[in-house]
Amino acid sequence: MLSEKSTPVVRATLPVVGAAIGEITELFYAKLFEAHPELLRDLFNRGNQAAGAQRQALAGSIAAFATRLVEQPGTRPDAMLRRIAHKHASLGVAPAQYDVVHRHLFAAIVDVLGEAVTPEVAAAWDEVYWLMANALIAIEQGLYAEQGCLSGGTWRDWEVVGRTEETADVVSLLLRPVGEGARPLPFRAGQYVSVQVELADGARQIRQYSLVGAADATVRQIGVKRERAGATTPAGEVSNHLHDHVRVGDTLRVSAPFGDLTLAEDPADRPMLLASAGIGVTPMLSLLHELVARGHRQPVLAVHGDRSPADHALRAEQDTLTGKLTAGATAFWYERDATSGDRTGLVDLGEIEVPAGTVAYLCGPLPFMRAVRAQLLAKGVAAADVHYEVFGPDLWIAG
C-alpha cells in the first residue's frame, strides 16, 4: 500500500508522468543499454526493442500499477504482476537487476521531467517503483523455489530428438534433457519454456515457447512459428534460427517451465472455451491434454482462427483431443480456403452457444483476443473467467 504521504503526490503527478511515460521508457532503455550492452545482447528481445513493443509494455505496466495504488488503495494488480513475474523467471531475472533498472529509470524520469521532479515527487515515485519491484521479486523468488533453484538458475541443456514440419511456417521440436537419467521437470498445462540460442553475431537471444503435449510425457514438445518481417516489425531472430539451423541431435539451452495460463487446481467441472489464433494453438493443446486426463465431463469448445486450413498447425491433434472428451467440440474459422464444416472469415462467436459458467482461455494476436473477450463478455461470461496468454510483451495493459 502506498503511504499516506506519497498518495496525494502520486495522484497529483500521475497525469504528468503518464503523459511522458513513453518518452521516459524510451530514454530509460537507451541509458540502460548504453551502460549494459550485454542486457540487450543476451537478455532483452532485440526484435521487441526495435519495434518499440517492450517500451509500450513497460510504460503500460508502470501506469497501471501507479493508477491502481491511488484509485484502489490496499489492492494491487496481482494478475498483471504474476504474468510479468513468470516471464521474468523464465528469463532468469535476479533481484539485483531491479537496482540497475531503478538507477537508469529514475535518471530518465529526471531528464524528461526536469524541475518537476522535486525531492517530494522523487520520493513518492521511488515508493511506487519499489512497491512494484519488491512484489515482483517476491513472486519470482517463489517461482524459483518451486523449481528447486536459485534466482536465474533454471537453465539446462536439452537435445533435439525430433523435428516435424507442421506447416510452411511452423515446426515442432521434441526436446529431452541432456544427462544420464535426466528427466524433464514437471509442468502445468498451458505453461511455456524459454529457449536460448547463440546467433551468428554471438548474441544469446531468448524466446518463450508453449509446451504442447501432455504433462507426463518423457520428452517436451514446442511449436515454433517462423516470424517473418512485417511492415513495422523485423523478422524473428530466434524463430528463423530454429527453423533454418536446428536439427535432430543439436542442443538448446532451455529454462524450467513458467506461465500462469493454467487450469484451476480445483478439479470441479465447468464448461470451457479454448480460443486460439495462429500459433496460439500450442498452449490450448496442452490444456486439452490435461482436460482429457482429468476426464472432464462438461462441454469444452476449442475455437481457432487462421489464415487457411494449410496454416492451421496441429489441427489433427486438436480434433483428436476434443474427440476424446465427453462433450468436446471444435469451431474453426479461416480467412480463405475454408472447407465443408468450417467457417470463413474471422472468429465470430455470435451464433455460438456459450453455456452459463463458462471459463475461457485465449491465446493469439492481441486484436483477436480483445475481440473474443468482448464477444464473451457480451454473452455473459464473467470478466474474471477470461484468461489469456500474450506471446511477447503484454501490450493489453498498455492499450
Rank of each mutant, 00 (worst) to 15 (best):
H245V: 13
D342W: 08
T344C: 06
L273P: 02
W333P: 04
R253C: 02
A275G: 15
Q318A: 15
H312C: 09
A277M: 05
A302W: 01
V281F: 05
L291Q: 07
A327S: 14
T339Y: 02
R336W: 00
T320A: 15
P267H: 11
D311A: 15
K324F: 06
H243P: 08
Q318P: 06
V246L: 13
A331S: 14
L321D: 01
A268W: 08
R343W: 08
L301P: 02
L273N: 05
T326W: 01
A264S: 15
M284E: 02
S276D: 03
F332T: 07
R307H: 13
S276V: 01
G323P: 08
T262N: 07
V248Y: 11
Y334R: 05
D266R: 12
A302I: 04
L261R: 09
S286A: 15
S308A: 15
P283H: 11
H296C: 04
A313C: 11
A277Q: 08
V248N: 04
D250S: 14
R307E: 13
L263V: 12
H304T: 00
L288C: 10
A331M: 02
R270L: 12
L314Y: 14
K324E: 10
L274R: 09
G278C: 11
R307T: 12
P283K: 08
L263P: 10
E265F: 06
T339S: 13
P309R: 09
T282E: 00
G328K: 00
H296S: 04
V246R: 10
A316W: 04
T282S: 12
G295P: 10
H304N: 01
H304L: 07
Q298Y: 09
F258Y: 15
E290F: 02
A264V: 03
R307Y: 01
V303D: 09
L291A: 04
R297Y: 06
P257F: 03
T339A: 15
A338M: 06
G323A: 12
L321K: 05
G249T: 02
R294F: 05
L325W: 04
T320V: 08
V300F: 06
L273W: 04
V300G: 05
Y334K: 02
T326K: 10
I279C: 10
R307D: 13
S308T: 14
G341Q: 05
